[in-house]
């Protein structure tokens, strides 16, 4: 399957915009990605090994939080997209 790498993380993935991995679940796909590109790990996961809250992972067009999270099964032709969130605002509180 293909994993799409967003622009800010490509510097930790040999500048690739997409990486092909073999996996049975979303978690295996992300493990395969970080095994190949270890520097990505700290940008995707907290110290206790959970996906960072602002890191959205979409299997095709669906948020994995609303599927089976990292246990979600994947197929060879699927695309996994990593998209850090985009938000902000003018006032502090």
């Amino acid at each position: 399957m293909r994993i799409m790498i967003p622009t800010p993380l490509r510097q930790y993935a040999d500048k690739k915009d997409a990486v092909e991995v073999k996996a049975g679940t979303v978690g295996e796909a992300l493990s395969g990605l970080t095994a190949r590109h270890p520097e990505l790990r700290k940008h995707l996961y907290t110290d206790d090994g959970r996906l960072r809250a602002f890191v959205n992972v979409y299997l095709n067009d669906e948020d994995i939080r609303y599927l089976g999270k990292e246990q979600t099964p994947v197929n060879e032709g699927d695309t996994l997209s990593i998209v850090p969130s985009i938000a902000g605002g003018s006032l502090i509180s």
Partner: peptide, 8 residues
């Protein structure tokens, strides 16, 4: 807020 929420 903009900085806290900026990740790219």
């Amino acid at each position: 807020t903009d900085l806290a929420e900026a990740h790219w």
